[in-house]
């Protein structure tokens, strides 16, 4: 088993942290091998950014994806830029408010991550809502491993907010699964 996961958005949304949390969940809180790489523009905010995670039960040689099994998109520009190499059976998860032009004739899982984060009082956790949605929709990792990884990766004073974001995202993911 080897899965290539890409999380993309604009710089400042925390796509790298999201990939980091997923990679850590796989390799520290479960027994997979994982590598996480990233690429981003020189901007501190804005621009298209992506974070990629490979999860495998074997040794990982080449550390970058050569195709994508799961794409999580959090901005229009990054969705337009980083979807050329997704596989035919790839799972696509996106926020329809952030990726308005998303009808590309494919099955999509829509999660209103930004809206949920705003309901929780801080849109900074949009990425964690998406991590929660990833955990329920993609199903590769145990939800508790991903949750542990979230807790282990965010500042302690924000644990509660992030755990709520994860749980709301997880529920939203479940609902998105039911809709399809």
């Amino acid at each position: 088993m080897k899965k290539d996961i890409r999380i993309c958005g604009f710089g400042g949304q925390g796509v790298i942290l999201a990939g980091f949390i997923i990679g850590k969940a796989a390799s520290v809180f479960e027994n997979y091998n994982a590598v996480q790489s990233q690429s981003y523009g020189p901007e501190a905010r804005g621009g298209a950014a992506r974070s990629e995670v490979i999860i495998s039960d074997e040794k990982i040689g080449y550390p970058r994806p050569v195709g994508v099994d799961c794409l999580v998109a959090m901005s229009q520009e990054s969705f337009d830029t980083y979807r050329d190499d997704i596989r035919d059976d790839a799972v696509i998860i996106l926020d329809p408010d952030l990726v308005k032009r998303h009808e590309i004739g494919r099955k999509l899982y829509k999660v209103n991550a930004l809206k949920i984060a705003e309901e929780l009082g801080n849109k900074i956790v949009t990425n964690i809502v998406m991590v929660g949605a990833f955990a329920s929709i993609y199903g590769l990792l145990k939800p508790e491993s991903v949750k542990e990884s979230v807790i282990d990766s965010v500042p302690k004073r924000f644990t509660d907010l992030n755990v709520k974001a994860f749980e709301r995202g997880f529920e939203a993911g479940k609902n998105a699964l039911k809709k399809l």
Binding site: S27, V28, N33, V35, Q36, S37, Q38
Partner: peptide
């Protein structure tokens, strides 16, 4: 830059 900016266990 590849290995330096890679995250692994």
């Amino acid at each position: 830059g590849e290995v330096g900016h890679l995250r692994e266990r």
